[in-house]
């Protein structure tokens, strides 16, 4: 059993938790993920490491309530326990040698983009963060991003926070204004990563994306997380989750990601009934 040491509601659907998991905290690096189960009957879900505290032995996860399991997890309070928490899994994000990077985060993907921006900042890299949300009330980690960014460009779909527009508009403006990046690191919805990659390909800027496909074991056994990268089959759990964005087949990844949508909708409705909401 793994204790929830603290819980913070970041916005109406996004929650941050620090989980006591010393074995994971000891090794975790930005870009890696964990697999958890809420309770003994629960499904296994992967979540990317948002932060860690090696001394306190805690790992931070930030998740959006998107389905039955994340709804159930969100019901848990600090001091309560979850059944399983395994990791760190996957390869850490490669940051070595990078001098100037644009980190592009979208929605809850910012929870994963932030530790990467922080790591880059700590190694002396110039970090430009382009961060987008649908609207102001969904914004998370603003102060954290500002702290580790040399330039911070907030964007929102409705203009209620920062500039109105998509992250790709802002990134295009930066590149066209003459900013030269060693690399762009894009983390967010698959559709966002797809369009960031289309843009950077045009300018020939190397782009790394963090994929978050459906997984079961997360250790290289089930193959559920397979993607097509550069025409080859790759497993996000052991080969990724970071990949060269110009090589990823995003359309296929989007289809695979939506495979259990009907089941998920049904499970969620059942859950809500059980919880007495409705």
């Amino acid at each position: 059993m793994y204790e929830i040491v603290s819980k913070t509601v970041l916005n109406p659907t996004v929650i941050r938790m620090d989980i006591k998991a010393p074995w994971v905290a000891r090794k975790a690096e930005a870009g890696q993920f964990i697999i958890l189960r809420v309770d003994e009957e629960g499904e296994r879900i992967p979540l990317t490491v948002a932060d860690y505290d090696r001394e306190a032995g805690t790992v931070t996860i930030i998740f959006q309530k998107v389905g039955a399991t994340t709804d159930k997890l969100a019901e848990k309070e600090a001091g309560e326990f979850i059944a399983d928490f395994a990791g760190p899994l996957g390869r850490p994000t490669e940051t070595e040698g990078l001098k100037k990077v644009a980190v592009v985060g979208g929605g809850v993907g910012c929870a994963i983009a932030y530790p990467v921006a922080k790591k880059l900042h700590e190694q002396g890299c110039e970090v430009h963060s382009v961060v987008g949300f649908r609207s102001k009330d969904l914004v998370i980690l603003e102060d954290d991003f500002r702290r580790v960014s040399d330039r911070f460009v907030p964007m929102s779909d409705d203009g209620s926070w920062g500039e109105k527009g998509l992250v790709t508009n802002a990134l295009r403006a930066l590149i066209e204004s003459g900013e030269q990046y060693d690399e762009v690191i894009a983390i967010g919805p698959v559709i966002m990563m797809k369009f960031v990659c289309q843009l950077t390909k045009e300018f020939g800027v190397k782009t790394v994306v963090s994929m978050n496909p459906i997984m079961i074991d997360g250790t290289g056994m089930c193959g559920g997380c397979r993607l097509t990268v550069g025409g080859k089959m790759k497993f996000a759990c052991v080969d990724g989750p970071d990949f060269d964005g110009h090589e990823v087949d995003f359309d296929e990844a989007m289809k695979r990601g939506a495979m259990y949508k009907p089941f998920e909708k049904h499970a969620r409705e059942c859950n809500l009934l059980k919880m007495g909401v409705n």
Partner: peptide, 14 residues
């Protein structure tokens, strides 16, 4: 092989 509905036996059995 990456279409929705295609499983490895490992995934299906797990």
């Amino acid at each position: 092989e990456n279409l929705c509905g295609v499983y490895s036996a490992n995934e299906f059995l797990t």
